[in-house]
């Protein structure tokens, strides 16, 4: 690597300088967690069996319940946006949603559009394949993602 040693040192110095500026660590480049807390959580919901049951404006299901608890913890109102997975994934990618649920698993094809939470539940389909269930968050909003991951892990522990 040779001469790049000084470049590394420079990068390190600039990162450490910036360390004083942020509050949360990890931080959100686009400030999702700060905006949502005591504000509005925009949740895309795609109908999928017991996980998400969309009936008009009413969203039910195990994932919807989890999201309600999470929003309550943040002091946030929920703005439900029903839709199909690919429309919701596009909206998430373009910053129009904060969270997408729809009984997604960690093999979801939308991993380029959003970040995956930790798997908070497992299920087997009729063919016997294992699914590890996740939710979809905006790419790189790491403070928000970590907050949600912590919530989901706590919820998983409590069963």
């Amino acid at each position: 690597m040779g001469r790049s040693g000084s470049k590394v040192a420079l990068l390190l110095a600039s990162v450490l300088t910036l360390a004083g500026c942020g509050s949360a660590y990890p931080a959100d480049p686009d400030g999702t967690l700060e905006r949502v807390a005591n504000g509005t959580l925009r949740v895309g919901a795609s109908d999928n069996g017991e996980w998400v049951d969309v009936d008009g404006e009413d969203v039910r299901g195990t994932e919807a319940d989890l999201v309600r608890d999470f929003a309550a913890r943040l002091g946030a109102e929920i703005d439900w946006v029903p839709g199909t997975e690919h429309v919701l994934a596009e909206e998430l990618k373009h910053g129009q949603l904060d969270l997408v649920i729809g009984g997604l698993d960690d093999k979801t094809p939308w991993a380029q559009h959003g970040g995956l939470t930790l798997a908070y539940a497992e299920s087997r389909d009729s063919r016997g394949s294992l699914h590890r269930h996740v939710m979809l968050v905006p790419l790189g909003e790491n403070a928000f993602l970590l907050e949600l991951d912590r919530f989901l892990m706590e919820a998983k522990e409590q069963g």
Partner: peptide, 13 residues
């Protein structure tokens, strides 16, 4: 934006 979330470290996220 690189997405890095939680890691289950012996029960601690």
């Amino acid at each position: 934006h690189p997405t890095i979330g939680g890691f289950d470290f012996f029960g601690q996220t």
